[in-house]
């Protein structure tokens, strides 16, 4: 999926990939693409034969920026277990910046949670690092991600979060009709289909004045 001609900087996205989190994941993908970055996550690997952590490590080494949502801290209703993949991948990312060499040293990460300072109850080792609470709200999440990307990349101006939110709302509104015409199930889009729909939407809205 990675194109060598793509000059956009990669943003590693480490978050839950379940239906409950889907609207927030959509919001992150939309903001990252709208701000001119390339979203990268483990969902882009379709090779069932490859070892998952190998691919994740490769993604982390290739991405200068990382968005990590550690809000999923409660146990699953059916199994009772909480998933530790997100804190584990956050640790890998921070580890790469601490012990890596060269461009690995420049890594920057955004740590998200749903309620402010909740991490102190389950991941207190990251105390002292800035975390941002999205309160499970898409608009809040868009603002946080946009503002952080704006700080990361000082070479170009990014659209204000107000406009990103407007474009995102238009995207959500038009997605069912777009998918219906090209015979995609908008409730069950694959990762590459999601990316394609967002890119088409942003390109179509290019000249729109809000």
């Amino acid at each position: 999926m990675a194109k060598h001609s793509d000059k956009r900087k990669g943003v590693f996205i480490n978050c839950p990939f379940d239906t409950q989190y889907q609207p927030l994941f959509d919001a992150i993908l939309f903001t990252v693409i709208d701000c001119g970055f390339k979203p990268r996550c483990s969902l882009e690997n379709y090779d069932g034969g490859s070892v998952r952590i190998e691919y994740i490590s490769k993604l982390i080494s290739e991405c200068e920026f990382g968005i990590h949502d550690i809000s999923r801290n409660k146990g699953d209703k059916k199994t009772g277990y909480a998933r530790f993949n997100m804190p584990y991948e956050l640790g890998l990312f921070i580890g790469a910046s601490k012990f890596g060499t060269g461009k690995q040293k420049n890594k920057k990460c955004l740590i998200l949670e749903s309620k402010k300072y909740e991490y102190q109850k389950y991941l207190s080792d990251i105390s002292g690092q800035d975390t941002y609470a999205h309160k499970n709200n898409e608009a809040t999440l868009i603002r946080i991600v946009r503002d952080w990307l704006s700080q990361c990349n000082k070479t170009k101006e990014l659209p204000s979060s107000k406009y990103v939110v407007k474009k995102y709302n238009a995207f959500k509104k038009g997605l069912p009709a777009f998918c219906k015409t090209i015979q995609w199930d908008h409730k069950n889009l694959k990762y590459h289909e999601q990316i394609s729909a967002i890119e088409q939407c942003l390109y179509a809205q290019k000249g729109t004045v809000y």
Partner: peptide, 27 residues
């Protein structure tokens, strides 16, 4: 902002894509 034209999804003709974009209200 410079926006590169994205590639059409695989197997989707330009005509269908244009119709989809129009019906979505994005353009």
């Amino acid at each position: 902002k410079k926006v590169n034209k994205p590639k059409a999804p695989k197997g989707i003709s330009k005509k269908v894509l244009r119709k989809a974009l129009s019906e979505s209200g994005w353009t």
